[in-house]
Design a protein around this nucleic acid. Structure first.
Lengths: 277, 277
DNA sequence: AGGTATTGTTCCATTATTCGGAACTGAATT
DNA sequence: AATTCAGTTCCGAATAATGGAACAATACCT
């Protein structure tokens, strides 16, 4: 569904001649990742033939590639010949999450913010054209975790996403949006780059962003951007909740606390990263 | 730390001659996975040179391999030249977790068991020589999630691990244990295959396993095994908690509920998988 | 049942990618 | 300025991936 880090940004450059296209693939690995993407994005485990038609590769080739992925534990093949994501992915992810510096630094500030407002707090970063949620703090959590963490969400209709975009220089922003597929999730979702760009300019001035039920009907949020001096990471914190409880007035009251949390996180990052450079 | 799915099981077979060794590598992918393992297992982000010495590969080669991993989002390279696990791993994992059939089937039974006992319930499966925790249900959870989920833990000193091992035919069990490195976590940890084998035989008879502070001092658990007719998946459910609260008597009382939960999960799997074969 | 279409697996000469030594750049150190 | 150390680029040689076709093993249909 979500195209994630698309390496294929510069594929359609302006010239029409038959020049050798820019180096754009990661060789063998790139092809295997496409397959992993296919399987992990599928709603149900896929059979060999399903993948064959989706991947458009010769059978022999595909068969070997899948075998390699299975042998490495990245995919699993059940007794009925259906391919599902492998559990080794969980092991990798658990490790990368547990040790993630940014998350570790942010965590206490997220908890503070949650306690101050009583609503759900998210931490997300921009990767490619998607926001990946790195952490989530809920009150007495009725819902299961992992529900949001790790999920890639669109950048053009989430509070954290728009906050992150507002930090990009105009040129990169346009480049990035050129590759985005504007899916209309609700009536309020931006349907084109034009209207989005206008809002983003506003967000850049104000220093905070709202999500007015743009991604999911009945869900609103306020978000503040997080950046580093060299723009190597961009992200945001947000407070999210049901529209019936979070009036726009209330969200406006929370602008200051969210911005303060974002500020504290940036401060923490500066202390951690500053001395090195 | 944990060697995970070691493909290299049959490397040291009995013969001493120079015959071509069994096919054992996954080509390009296998080499890249070794690197991913290195980085995700490290305590802190690694610099190029660190990886160079750990991986023992020519510089040019290593450089290209790491570049590919970074380009695919499996690794991230920060401004200081340090490699950390990439966030794309999180995205993959979130998906594979959310859609995992076994977990979805087991979930309600885990919740029931948690409510019946008030203690933490785990669901784990055996992959290679490790137990991977697929789910965890706590009471009003004071600790963060992801803490355990996805983590690979040793099979020889966890309740779920020993329960899973007890289902293996004698031969496979010996093979598997031959590759295990017996780390002594506490005074109660099995230090050799011999004593472990004895206990596992007992567990196979009884149909349940205890962890008597073998993995972590002060932590005990009861676990019951889960299997399928064709032995394609082996795992277990467990109730875990602090030793001061969970006396051995209490654990013995919980044998029945844990076994019942395991039974219900197997039942659920049979309904789901049965009709197909 | 028998025949046929479908699905999955193996083989091997060809082709493309990876390999890895060496030469190169740039920064830190003396 | 000279010297080490860390990281990057280059290119012929070695190796692994490719994909067509032949081969199993099932499911599907009269």
């Amino acid at each position: 569904m979500l195209p994630f880090l698309s390496r294929a940004d510069e594929m359609m450059n302006a010239n029409g001649d038959g020049m050798a296209q820019q180096a754009r693939e990661t060789g063998t690995l790139g092809k295997l990742m496409v397959l992993l993407d296919l399987v992990t994005h599928a709603d149900a485990p896929l059979r060999f033939t399903d993948i064959l038609s989706l991947a458009g590769q010769p059978r022999g080739t595909l068969h070997r590639q899948l075998s390699h992925l299975v042998e490495e534990g990245l995919l699993e093949l059940d007794g009925d010949g259906r391919y599902a994501p492998g559990l080794r992915l969980l092991d990798f992810a658990a490790r990368s999450w547990a040790r993630n510096e940014f998350r570790l630094i942010a965590e206490p500030h997220l908890v503070d913010l949650q306690q101050a407002t009583g609503e759900t707090v998210h931490l997300g970063v921009l990767r490619g054209q998607s926001i990946i949620y790195l952490d989530k703090v809920e009150g007495r959590q009725p819902v299961r975790m992992y529900s949001q963490i790790g999920n890639a969400s669109p950048c053009y209709c989430t509070g954290v996403g728009k906050a992150a975009l507002s930090l990009l220089p105009a040129e990169s922003l346009v480049d990035l949006l050129a590759g985005v597929n504007f899916t209309r999730f609700t009536a309020a979702t931006h349907a084109s780059p034009a209207s989005l760009l206008a809002e983003i300019r506003e967000i850049a001035d104000q220093g905070y962003a709202f999500d007015r039920e743009e991604h999911e009907a009945g869900i609103r949020c306020v978000a503040a951007p997080i950046w580093s001096e060299d723009r190597t990471f961009l992200g945001g914190v947000s407070i999210t909740g049901p529209a019936y409880r979070l009036s726009m007035e209330l969200l406006r009251e929370w602008v200051v606390p969210v911005q303060r949390a974002a500020g504290s996180i940036m401060e923490g990052m500066r202390i951690r990263l500053g001395p090195r450079r």
